[in-house]
Design a binder for these strands. Sequence first.
DNA 1: GACAGTGTAAAACGTTCGTTTTACACTTGG
DNA 2: CCAAGTGTAAAACGAACGTTTTACACTGTC
Lengths: 177, 177
Amino acid sequence: MDIKTNLMTAAERLFDRNGFTATGMDRLTQAAGLSSRTLYKHVGSKVALMGLVLSEREKRFMARLEVDSIDAVFAVLEGWVRDEGARGCLFLRAYGETGGDMPEISRVVLAHKAAMRAKIADIIAQEVGGNDETNATLTEQIVVLIEGATAAAIYRGPEAVMAARKAAAIIVAQARP
Amino acid sequence: MDIKTNLMTAAERLFDRNGFTATGMDRLTQAAGLSSRTLYKHVGSKVALMGLVLSEREKRFMARLEVDSIDAVFAVLEGWVRDEGARGCLFLRAYGETGGDMPEISRVVLAHKAAMRAKIADIIAQEVGGNDETNATLTEQIVVLIEGATAAAIYRGPEAVMAARKAAAIIVAQARP
DNA sequence: GACAGTGTAAAACGTTCGTTTTACACTTGG
DNA sequence: CCAAGTGTAAAACGAACGTTTTACACTGTC
């Protein structure tokens, strides 16, 4: 098994379950089953590891998001929550824990949010096909619903995502010409 | 000026801007202008201070939320974001940083979420007056929109709250008999 | 004028942090 | 066969962590 992949899987799990700052390097080396020397040779630093974990998660998430309707987006989200549990958006958590002033982190976070937004905008342009202003408003609202479902699922579980899905269906229907 | 109030104002600011775990006690004593001995005599421990800060914020937030329409709720949220900036829900951030397994914290967090939800349910029962099932669904959706506005505002600013407000108006109108 | 109470400054507690280093074992290709 | 590469185990680095302690100054009150 690839050593770096193994490390990053363990790191993502620990960061997600215990927080970034609260997760020490010894916990990481122990969970990944390697020495600190090897870890540092592979990823350089803790901040770099955080960035790599987020980049990897970004790929995994965006791959799942390869759908062509807003309803399907929320179906994906619901599946994600059921598969991986809900502890809040890992990107925003990393951003918050580092105060937003860690370039290596905030770059990945903001890039992820921009990519997600762009994907939603694409789907809306294709599914609804209103004018630019309507589409922009709708995109903003769907993004808010996605963020809200992710956050509320922490304490409400998948039900929050189901509620967001229904709300999205209503505002999409409302915006259709 | 009251010494404990002063401490908690400084603590809330530092926790919010830099994260809970990343904020050390020396940073807190320095910002509040007191010795560590006095700090510990007043609040006991760092975790207790975190709990107190969250309790105080809960009071402040719920006091602002004393309104009687869903639209007004989002107006309050918009004002809050403009006044205090948007770095994500401090309750959920505390929950995430402590892995959810710090009773002193998670109790305050979950209580806050329950209180907010109850307030929203009250407003809906009074403003919309549908049947119980409709009201429950609508409550869940409004809560999701509030969480989403709070989260998305981190990188989208007040615009996210405005979008949530419009979306809320639509789904409330849709639910009215 | 002793008293308890409350504050400060500053050092020290042991632990843990992220990171580097030392020393050694194992493959693998020229 | 040796040289380079890659891995481990474990100690060490200085700094920072949350917390406690020591020593001392200032307030009020009996």
